[in-house]
Design a protein around this nucleic acid. Structure first.
Lengths: 341, 341
DNA sequence: ATAAAAAGTTTTCGCGCGTAAACTTTTGAA
DNA sequence: TTCAAAAGTTTACGCGCGAAAACTTTTTAT
């Protein structure tokens, strides 16, 4: 396709018959040059496969076209899905997404923020670890870099927060469970990493009391992000200790529920809402695998799409100069009825 | 902590009492300077929080300290886990990992290779999409950038390939299934994205014939990476059509098996090796969730750790100048006996 | 103590581009 | 045709660092 190899913007400008600064202008915003000029550049772009050196580009720019995406735990398909949506939205908007996972480790989260800073990103989409996050570090980072928080909020840090209306999730599920059977107890980790868990518990308590039932919370030990393992191990322990005083168990999240379903299986408890079933189990999130548990898990679906779309839009609106006060956007969940409850 | 803000290496060198080129040398290899000098630099490093500008650093270097990690589908926890291990190994070796996922899309895979090229990475760890990969593009890329392929191989491209001995996986499982019950049939997608599927099928056929059994393959339609969905939908169809002539089903991979387990559940088939069970189901990979299916899935475990460790080691050995011929390393799988078969 | 080797310094150059200012050309409408 | 605005060009400078060469100092070995 090419005659001679283009080594830099100077040579490319010569080849396209346009001056170098104009070419530079084109790459920063194709609409900023005359259509005729643009055509000449794009013509040359097809003859030669020149691409500007990104390091030289970013060196003299205070802000790059990079957007950092940080999630707490990428091995959780929920975050993998969100990351995918966010990446696509960034690319569509002409930005370059860079993906990071804290892998559940606070130290790594701090390291990521550090190296992100030196990337001079235009903005960052950050889902913090939650309870274990270094609040001071994140606050400082948000002061330096335009950051939109999502999934789990930390006070009112960042430009905005986009997440789910967690109390509504629990209310929805409690209402359904109560009108279709016994009132549920709430199964959760004692010290959950994610602050959403607290809001779900509170939502559960409020919903139960509104219906005139006494809330019953089964808290189990467990640290980290291996929720399925905790759900299984501590689910077994709780079952054996007779800690459930109802046949309906609402789990704090789907991954915990997946582990708990396995615990039920190992104890020979048939899960479901049929008359021959021993126990009903429900979760929160609509985790990608919840459709494929046995039985398929009844849960409350997070609005993945809306959350990621709105997070990206909020960030880009802020980047384009529109100063807005810290805004919190919470999306409602939808009941997903399957066979487990 | 700091007195005055350090703006560049020049100022930092002045503050630490060492010349700028020496500081530069230090950052490229801390061991290349005298211990005394190193101490002075690291002393200053604690007083001021200076960090070299990565864009300026990489501009004049033909090779950076970046290492690209490319996986085909990050929403699959298997790849998320591998990515985590690879990232950690890169960091430990003093490199900067950059993670990409093709999200199952060949176009995106090519885009990633393109933008990776402009990152001037020291090396790349690439798990290609497989059948849908653009072979020509990958071949060209491997010619430009030191690349170690893993998980799914493409001819003898790249510096090396690191993966699993897939025929051995199937042999192991077939042997076990045959000596503990009926010989298995093989359940797979007709046009699998991943070439490992073909090797597993071949391993299955060879193992069956070695034991004097007639192989029986159940191929179902389905494209893309939504394996669970395909396993469920096509599993239901195959069950209803009576396509299984044995009570033992060996699935091409665990995600397919997870979907198939759900199909069995929906048809009221009890899965397991007990006398009251109707069907046995097994998989390949030891997917992170396989422990938590109901019943827990019997499978052959990929040696995640060895694969990722060896891939990284191979790459770094090559980067340090040791020219080696294209080498293929395959790790054996281990039988993981659970309750499903 | 003395020479040789190792490490550090100084000097100089250049990477590929962004950016600003002053100037020139093109464009489009009156 | 005329002219002002828009777009492009020229010129000039600098970003923050890598790298090579020649020189100077420190360390190591004899």
């Amino acid at each position: 396709m090419s005659e001679t190899r283009i080594r830099n913007m100077e040579e490319f400008a010569a080849a396209s018959g346009v001056s170098r600064p104009t070419v530079s202008k084109y790459f920063n915003d194709p609409d900023s040059v005359r259509p005729k000029t643009r055509a000449r550049i794009e013509d040359a772009l097809e003859r030669y496969d020149y691409r500007p050196n990104i390091f030289a580009m970013n060196q003299n720019r205070k802000l790059t076209k990079n957007v950092g995406i940080v999630v707490p735990y990428l091995a959780d398909p929920f975050f993998a899905e969100i990351a995918r949506t966010l990446e696509q939205a960034c690319i569509a908007a002409g930005y370059t997404p860079v993906l990071y996972s804290a892998h559940g480790e606070p130290d790594l989260e701090n390291d990521i923020l550090d190296s992100l800073r030196s990337l001079k990103p235009a903005g960052v989409l950050l889902a913090p670890l939650g309870r274990l996050s270094d609040r001071a570090a994140i606050e400082k980072f948000c002061g330096d870099v335009p950051t939109v928080l999502f999934d789990s909020s930390i006070r009112d840090l960042g430009l905005a927060f986009v997440g789910s209306d967690n109390p509504q999730f629990s209310r929805l599920m409690v209402d359904y469970l109560c009108r279709s059977g016994e009132p549920p107890c709430f199964f959760e980790m004692k010290t959950p990493a994610n602050p959403n868990a607290n809001r779900r518990r509170q939502g559960y308590i409020a919903a139960m009391e509104a219906l005139g039932h006494a809330p019953h919370i089964v808290q189990v030990p467990g640290e980290g992000w291996a929720f399925e393992e905790i759900g299984l191990r501590e689910g077994l322990a709780a079952l054996d200790a007779g800690r459930f005083d109802t046949d309906t168990v609402l789990c704090s999240n789907d991954r915990l529920a997946i582990g708990f379903l396995t615990a039920c299986y190992e104890r020979g408890l048939k899960v479901g809402r049929g008359s021959d079933c021993h126990i009903r189990v429900a979760g929160h999130d609509d985790h990608p695998f919840s459709r494929y548990t046995c039985p398929p898990l009844t849960t409350v679906a997070q609005d993945y799409d809306s959350i990621s779309r709105h997070a990206v839009e909020t960030l880009f609106r802020a980047l384009e100069g529109q100063e807005t006060p810290h805004e919190v956007t919470l999306f409602e969940g939808k009941l997903v009825m399957r066979d487990s409850a």
